[in-house]
Simulated assay, not measured.
Amino acid sequence: MAKQIQSPLPGTFYRKPAPEEPNFIEDGASIAVGDTIGLVEVMKTFHEVKAETAGDNARFQAENEAPVMAGAVLVEMD
């Protein structure tokens, strides 16, 4: 069964720290506990989303700059 990282709150999901910066994590990458996988912006405040579980072969389910709800799956991994 795939492991999941879910959004802790509703807002806009960003895969990179700034528009000109690379993604925090690329599709297919390994993720370690504590890695920042993205940001969720709520009312101009950015909240880091950190992995609470490790896994391989990250597959992002949420697009960059997409609206997400609390509990929405952001990443699945093996």
Rank of each mutant, 00 (worst) to 15 (best):
M1G: 09
M1V: 08
M1E: 11
M1H: 10
A2W: 09
A2D: 08
A2P: 13
K3A: 07
K3C: 00
Q4V: 09
Q4E: 10
Q4Y: 10
I5D: 01
I5R: 00
Q6P: 02
Q6F: 10
Q6S: 04
Q6R: 12
S7T: 08
S7Y: 11
S7C: 11
S7P: 07
P8A: 06
P8W: 01
L9G: 05
L9M: 13
P10W: 04
P10H: 06
T12V: 14
T12Q: 07
F13K: 01
F13G: 06
F13W: 04
F13R: 01
Y14H: 05
R15V: 06
R15A: 12
R15T: 09
K16D: 01
K16T: 08
K16G: 07
P17A: 13
P17R: 01
P17T: 04
P19R: 08
P19F: 11
E20Q: 13
E20I: 04
E21W: 06
E21Q: 13
E21L: 11
P22Y: 04
P22C: 05
P22R: 03
N23T: 09
F24C: 08
F24H: 03
I25L: 08
I25P: 05
E26P: 04
E26F: 09
D27T: 00
A29M: 11
A29W: 12
A29L: 07
A29P: 07
S30H: 14
S30P: 08
S30C: 11
I31D: 00
I31P: 00
I31M: 00
A32Q: 15
V33F: 07
V33N: 02
V33E: 14
G34L: 09
G34M: 12
D35Q: 13
T36N: 10
I37P: 00
G38W: 06
G38E: 02
L39Y: 03
L39R: 02
V40W: 07
V40C: 12
E41H: 09
V42I: 13
V42T: 14
V42E: 13
K44L: 12
K44I: 00
K44G: 07
F46M: 15
F46S: 07
E48N: 02
E48A: 03
E48S: 08
V49N: 00
V49E: 00
V49K: 00
K50C: 06
K50T: 14
A51Y: 09
A51N: 10
A51F: 10
E52H: 13
E52K: 15
E52G: 15
A54C: 10
A54V: 14
G55Q: 03
D56Y: 11
N57A: 15
A58D: 02
A58T: 05
R59D: 12
F60L: 10
F60Y: 15
F60H: 01
F60P: 00
E63Q: 13
N64R: 03
N64S: 06
E65W: 10
E65T: 15
A66K: 09
A66D: 04
A66F: 11
P67E: 14
V68E: 02
V68S: 06
M69I: 02
A70Y: 06
A70V: 03
A70L: 05
A70H: 05
G71P: 04
G71F: 04
G71R: 05
G71T: 01
A72Y: 05
A72I: 01
A72K: 14
A72S: 14
V75F: 06
V75M: 08
E76H: 08
E76D: 13
